[in-house]
Simulated scan of single mutants.
Amino acid sequence: MADNYYPPVGFYFKVNVIGVSGSNEGNFQEVSGLNIKLETQEVKEGGENRYAHRLPSPPKFQNIVLKRGLTTSSALITWAKAAVEQFTFSPKTVVINLMDENASPLASWNIKNAYPVALQFSDFKAQENGIVIETIDLAFDYFTRTF
């Protein structure tokens, strides 16, 4: 970016599912679920009644949700259908790149051992003039972010 003091925009990104090929597989309208949350558990100490120790638990991750317009032929949908219809899982690494105006990655999120857990299609409504959206939910082990 020309000026590193301005925050990057969130509308220019690319998604790559490593091992799932296709010319337009990474074109999505929306990606959500890049969240980490640490829970705490309380541990009471014998003889100490004023407080309980609050210790961190392992992190919890939400599912990654990918949304795009319906495609008629897609290796990504074939991979998702194998999981949700045939219960055949093939975990993949998913890389999400936030791009700058020169199409260079500003930040990358590497999602490890992702696999589809839901495949949804938007409602069909005769009174609206919208495109059909396909949504893929991915469960995964963890992700890392790099700049």
Rank of each mutant, 00 (worst) to 15 (best):
S122A: 04
F124Y: 12
F61N: 07
F124C: 11
K81R: 13
P59G: 06
W109D: 07
K125A: 10
E101K: 12
S122D: 01
V117Y: 04
S108R: 12
Q62H: 08
A107K: 13
D123G: 14
Q127H: 10
V95E: 13
N113D: 15
A83N: 04
L98C: 06
N49D: 10
S74P: 02
A103I: 06
W79R: 07
F89N: 09
V117Q: 04
A103T: 07
R68F: 05
T78Y: 10
E101D: 14
N110D: 11
N110F: 15
V117I: 14
L119V: 13
P105Q: 07
N63P: 00
L119P: 00
A126I: 14
I96E: 06
V65S: 03
P116W: 04
F87C: 12
L55K: 11
K67L: 00
Y51N: 10
N97S: 15
A103E: 12
H53M: 12
A80I: 03
K125S: 12
N63G: 02
L70R: 09
M99Q: 12
E85S: 09
W79P: 02
L70S: 09
L119D: 13
I96F: 06
G69L: 10
F124D: 06
R50A: 13
K125F: 00
P58S: 03
W109A: 05
T71K: 12
A82V: 00
L119R: 02
M99Y: 07
K112V: 06
A107M: 13
A126P: 01
N63A: 11
T78I: 11
E101M: 13
K92R: 15
T93F: 01
L66I: 04
V117D: 05
A126F: 08
S108P: 01
M99S: 08
Q120I: 05
K60W: 00
K92M: 02
F121Y: 04
F61Q: 05
L119W: 15
N113S: 14
A52H: 03
Q120G: 09
R68L: 01
R50H: 08
A107T: 12
L106E: 05
K60M: 07
I77F: 08
P56K: 06
P58W: 04
L70T: 10
Q127G: 13
R54H: 09
T72D: 09
N49M: 05
